[in-house]
Design a protein around this nucleic acid. Structure first.
Lengths: 173, 173
DNA sequence: TGATAATTGTTATGGACCATATCAAATATC
DNA sequence: GATATTTGATATGGTCCATAACAATTATCA
């Protein structure tokens, strides 16, 4: 079920083959049969996820935000006053790995760690003014260039159904 | 949008919170608000993918096959006589990374590399008898323990719709 | 034909992400 | 007040992904 992240070099040929074109010049080996693979949940799920992340990164190139960073900013904005452990764990990020991530966001002045006065072990996370501004722009880019693409592709109701089913799988599978 | 692979330690608490239970003993900080995150395609897609792969690995524990390895065996079975480059590229695996993967499968006597007589640079890939037998058992496990779970969760028609939409995203996004 | 370019499998290597163990400081527990 | 737990952090190893480079072989073409 593995799929790499690289844009495949053979994409043009694959596209031609998919559309039934034939290059009369080159003999050109026939395309492989995917067979049952195209019905495998994990396979198609992984391929879709890679494509979506790839598109996300393109849409956010101007803001230099990865999906992971975007999710952190969103969650910190929605939950002010929480510490690193709480934010990390609800995103499924392990605390040790969250440190470098925050170092990055903090060095770019998008968020800040504040020593809690209640519990001086904790670092309360907040968005800086720049962080709020960047997140606002990020939301618009995601909505107009990224999520909108799903509507174009599937239609509004199918899009909602898809998100719902994926959420169900994420929570109950 | 990041989600780690570890089964979260807080899963019991999260489950309790989701069902509205309250532990009267501990004060217990309130659960965080996911907010717009739960509507983000990438976020829900990634979480679903991790859950599905996790379940896949559990189902295949007796055969010790990863999703990637399963996909290779499936594709080699469906496309006999193809070389490493062809198999790897249609799975989106880069040739250098495919070498160790094949070393593994070959050391377990699941598949074999055969020097092509037409082009002595190429290694033709074939399944061994053991490889065919293992793949047959793997298919049954996947069908009964893995894919069947989707039907239980979503129903037959929704399951087909989901696969179709994911394939569309994978191909056209 | 023979020189040059391209392809195949491979190795080496670095980056990104994920997971575990461990630590000091602070807090909780008893 | 002694012990255990929690928080952020560091170190470290594993896996996966990506690029460069190489020898052997084949294709190209002057």
């Amino acid at each position: 079920m593995t799929v790499s992240k690289t844009a495949e070099k053979s994409s043009e040929k694959a596209a031609d083959a998919a559309k039934g074109r034939k290059d009369p010049a080159e003999p050109q080996a026939e395309a492989l049969q995917l067979g049952e693979l195209s019905e495998q949940l994990g396979y198609v799920l992984k391929r879709a996820q890679l494509k979506v992340f790839e598109n996300f990164l393109r849409c956010m190139a101007s803001l230099q935000l990865t999906p992971a960073q975007f999710s952190v900013l969103l969650l910190v904005e929605k939950n002010p006053g929480r510490n690193q452990t709480e934010i990390a764990s609800t995103l499924g990020i392990l605390r040790p790995n969250f440190v470098a991530m925050l170092d990055n966001l903090e060095s770019r002045d998008l968020c800040a760690r504040i020593r809690s006065t209640n519990d001086r072990r904790s670092h309360i996370l907040v968005l800086t003014d720049k962080g709020k501004a960047v997140l606002a722009r990020a939301k618009k880019l995601v909505a107009t260039k990224h999520e909108a693409r799903l509507n174009d592709l599937l239609g509004q109701s199918n899009r909602e159904a898809l998100i719902g089913m994926l959420a169900k799988i994420a929570n109950e599978f």
